[in-house]
Nucleic acid binder design. Structure first.
Lengths: 166, 166
DNA sequence: CTTATCTTTCAAAAAGTTTTGAACTTTCAA
DNA sequence: TTGAAAGTTCAAAACTTTTTGAAAGATAAG
């Protein structure tokens, strides 16, 4: 396999994976391109590298910076902005978990909380509250677990995790 | 808050959450409806409960069964099929992890494997291979971790996990 | 200043995904 | 058997998300 073909395949695969992880395809492809480029790329390099419009490039770079998956790097003497990818996969996972926790788990928790307030002491209401409470409890646990995961150090975590579970 | 309003909110929230987890909105709403219904529902009950078409109902019930999130239950003397939700959240998470591992992580691993075959011993190629190898290694670990997670028992896991991490 | 280069914005178009509904198939009680 | 009820399929329509491109906004060198 040629290097160029390999790079292309990598970008495609990373894009596909990303699109299942709340990162849209282009966003993930930009990240992939930066991962395998040697050195920082400008918005224009990215636009040309992926054959996408400038608007699209700009939007998605900003989203990536927002997620903490890409950093802006200023090169002395250069007019343009340059960008580099976060290359530590553990950090990438942490950033994604952090974002998604905030955007998904927290809103759910808020709703479940509210739902405890439904009125009525008939059996149907009690049953409903029970289901909601169960889920609420579970998502509380999930939230704590993920918070710890995000806080923990990668080597330690993976090491311990792997041994413990088994 | 009224019970009906509460149920409605729950279904909406579960639908939103699901759509970020590879389960489409309707699929997740069906699961939610079943979670809070007392007793099994027929396809028609679900259709009416959520105001969706029969086709849509059918497609999504089958997908849910496929994922292992809903079971078919035959009621003696009844012509129709009835359905119940998997209510154990831990099991729900396991099913989802299993599916997504199969559909996302495994294909990625296959590609990364192939990518080790790119030819060339120039620096650029070596650099590329290094990045790919890193990611390959990481996804191998993720895969094992998730596999263990899926295999482990819920109470034990959550208990230990929570104590260990921290 | 002025101008050329780079970045941002956003409405409209394209692409992708989900839903519908009508036709078709299966099932089972009579 | 037969036919009414239940379940399935799939192309087209509705809806959602992403992408484009053109215009406007910044910025820095001359």
């Amino acid at each position: 396999m040629e290097l160029e073909e390999g790079k292309h395949k990598f970008i495609q695969s990373w894009g596909t994976l990303g699109s299942h992880w709340g990162i849209n395809r282009t966003m993930a492809q930009i990240h992939a391109l930066l991962l395998i480029s040697n050195g920082p790329l400008s918005a224009n390099d990215i636009k040309e590298g992926l054959n996408i419009s400038m608007g699209n490039t700009n939007m998605n770079i900003r989203a990536l910076i927002d997620w903490g998956l890409v950093y802006k790097e200023l090169i002395p003497g250069e007019r343009k902005d340059f960008y580099v990818a976060e290359k530590d996969m553990w950090e990438v996972v942490r950033r994604i978990v952090t974002q998604r926790k905030k955007k998904e788990l927290e809103p759910l928790t808020r709703v479940l909380n509210e739902l405890q307030k439904v009125e009525g002491d008939d059996e149907e209401t009690q049953e409903f509250k029970k289901v909601v409470k169960d889920i609420h409890l579970f998502s509380g646990k999930a939230n704590t677990a993920l918070e710890n995961l995000v806080r923990s150090d990668s080597k330690w975590f993976i090491g311990t995790f792997m041994k413990m579970i088994k």
